[in-house]
Amino acid sequence: MRETTPSASGTSQMIAHHLDGDMLMQYCAGTLAEGWSVAVATHLALCPACRSEMRTLESVGGYFLERENAERDDVTESWRRVKDKIEAGHMEKAVRMKKRSSSDLTYPEPLRTYIDAAGGLRWRSLGRGAAQMIIPIGDKTTSVRLLKIPAGQPVPEHSHGGLELTLVLDGSFSDEISTFGRGDIEIADGNLTHQPRANPGRDCICLAVTDAPLRFKSRLLRLIQPLLGI
């Protein structure tokens, strides 16, 4: 696997915090729940190094496919059916152009399509200038939302019942240990109570995926949590 180096032009930034190996493997195997997969795929759009890792894992899939049982019974019959379909010009589908309704490059695919499907960006205030937008997904085991934290402000303090993945899309935030910028991923588990804070100068926009409702320390936030849908 190749190491990535920043390009001379400085257009591609270095991503410091990458995907968790297990999660990437599950994504490549097709077993990762949709909510996590949205974040994984959006990170992949921003991270050539993880895309390269993904290609390696997929080639492991190709390696195993080559070594599958190749017993040939009924192959001729099956081929005959397929050949008939091909010759009848069956199932030739026109390639559909994906329409791009939004030109905002803050949100790479596949996230942009999810936002568009929800009717575009619609922020709902969380108070103190913070806002969020729930991203509707088909999977019941995770919840996905966009979070906007005003420059220099803390993220409301919370701990997690389960796993929380945060992908930075704009601006940056820091916790006690490190700084996270566009494309970086932070994974926090149930044991961590942390107090990330958006860095000054620019609002921080993140994609946050959780597998359990967040537990806010503030009693008020806990009470209104169901109303906010977080």
Partner: peptide, 20 residues
């Protein structure tokens, strides 16, 4: 089989950070 959705990035997305 899983009747699921597999979100994927788009190689032609202008927001994609290209390979070196």
């Amino acid at each position: 089989v899983r009747r699921g959705t597999r979100p994927a990035f788009d190689e032609n997305d202008p927001a994609l950070v290209p390979d070196e």
